[in-house]
C-alpha cells in the first residue's frame, strides 16, 4: 500500500519560494503578465530581457543544472526555427548568402532568432511558474472561481496516483501469471488493452464506493457548499497584485511604443539605448527582489 510513494512525480506539494508568503493569485497574476508580455512584445531587446529574466529566476528556483537540462532540448529547436525561417520565409533587403538556390536575408535570420528567443523565454517562464504554482495553489484558485470543477480536479489528482499504482499491480499480475504470457505482438498488444480494461472496471466500481462516501458526508445536501480557504487574500497580497498590475501596464505601454518604432522588414530598425527598457527589466526581476528581501531577513 505504501508503494504509492514510488509512483514518482511529486507535484502536489508546496514549493519553497518567497511567493509562498502570498496568496496563489499573486504569482498567478505575475506569471500571466510576464508570459503575455513576453509573447506580445516582439522586439529584440524585450525578447532578450525576457529570456535573461527567465533564466536568472529559473537558476534561482530550479537550480542551474535543471535550467541547462531544459535548454538542452529547447536550444536545438530554437536554432532550427531561427535557421528555417530565413530559408522558407525569405524577406528583407540585406542579402547574406545564397543557399540551395535561395537567398538568405539578414532580416529574416534575425526575425527567426528573435522568434526562437521568445519561444525559449516563454517555455522557461512556464517552467518557473510550474515550480511556484503547484497543483495545490492552482486548485485553490479554481476552488474559488469554479468550486465543482475545483473539487473534480482534486478528486482526479486523488485518483491518478492510485490508478497508476493499480495499473502497475495489474501489469505485475499479468506478468507473474506465466500461463497467459504473450506469444506474439498481437497478444502483447491485447494484454496492454486488457490492462487498461481491468483498471477501468476496477476504478469505476470503486468510484461507486467513493460516491457513497461523498453522499454520507452530505454531498448534494440542502445547504449550499462552502470552500475551505487554505490561503487568505490579505492586504499585502492586494498591494503586491496591484503593483504588479500597474507595472505590467507601464511595461505594456512601453513595449507598444518600442514595437511600433521597430520593424524587422524591410530593414531592421537600429536599436538605441532607451530608459524604457528599465521598468520591464524591473518587472522580470521582481520575484528575485522578493526572494532577496526574504533572504536578508535570515541573514540578520
Amino acid at each position: 500500500m505504501s508503494e504509492e510513494q514510488h509512483t514518482g512525480t511529486d507535484i502536489t506539494h508546496d514549493s519553497r519560494s518567497a511567493f509562498d508568503l502570498y496568496h496563489p493569485a499573486v504569482p498567478l497574476v505575475y506569471f500571466t503578465i510576464v508570459i503575455v508580455l513576453s509573447m506580445a512584445a516582439f522586439q529584440p531587446v524585450f525578447c532578450v530581457l525576457s529570456l535573461a529574466g527567465a533564466l536568472i529566476y529559473g537558476c534561482y528556483l530550479r537550480g542551474w543544472r535543471a535550467v541547462v537540462r531544459s535548454l538542452r532540448w529547447s536550444l536545438p529547436m530554437v536554432l532550427i526555427i531561427a535557421l528555417l525561417n530565413p530559408f522558407f520565409s525569405a524577406f528583407g533587403t540585406t542579402q547574406l548568402f545564397v543557399l540551395l538556390g535561395r537567398t538568405i536575408y539578414l532580416e529574416s535570420l534575425v526575425y527567426g532568432l528573435c522568434m526562437g528567443l521568445m519561444l525559449t523565454a516563454m517555455l522557461q517562464w512556464f517552467s518557473n511558474a510550474a515550480v511556484v504554482l503547484t497543483f495545490e495553489k492552482i486548485l485553490a484558485i479554481f476552488g474559488n472561481v469554479l468550486p465543482t470543477i475545483g473539487l473534480m480536479l482534486s478528486m482526479i489528482m486523488r485518483f491518478v496516483p492510485m490508478l497508476a499504482r493499480r495499473g502497475r499491480e495489474v501489469e505485475g499480475v499479468q506478468q507473474a501469471c506465466t500461463a497467459i504470457a504473450p506469444r506474439s505482438v498481437r497478444e502483447s498488444t491485447s494484454l496492454r488493452v486488457r490492462e487498461a480494461s481491468v483498471l477501468m472496471g476496477w476504478s469505476l466500481e470503486d468510484s461507486l464506493r467513493t460516491a457513497d462516501a461523498m453522499r454520507a458526508r452530505g454531498w448534494g445536501g440542502p445547504n449550499s457548499r462552502s470552500v475551505y480557504q487554505r490561503y487568505r487574500f490579505g492586504s499585502a497580497d492586494l498591494a503586491l497584485t496591484v503593483s504588479f498590475a500597474l507595472l505590467g501596464l507601464v511595461c505594456a505601454f512601453l513595449a507598444w511604443v518600442a514595437c511600433s518604432q521597430f520593424a524587422f522588414y524591410p530593414t531592421i530598425t537600429p536599436l538605441i539605448m532607451w530608459w524604457g527598457y528599465v521598468p520591464y527589466a524591473g518587472l522580470l526581476l521582481l520575484p528575485l527582489f522578493i526572494e532577496f528581501e526574504e533572504a536578508l531577513r535570515w541573514m540578520r
Partner: peptide, 25 residues
C-alpha cells in the same frame, strides 16, 4: 448546471484513467 454525481463521477474516473494510462504507457 449544478451537476450531480452521475455527471461528476464518470468524468472524474475517465479523466483519471486517461492520465494514469498516459503515465503507465
Amino acid at each position: 448546471s449544478s451537476p450531480g454525481l452521475r455527471q461528476v463521477m464518470p468524468i472524474v474516473v475517465l479523466v483519471a484513467l486517461a492520465c494514469a494510462v498516459r503515465i503507465l504507457f
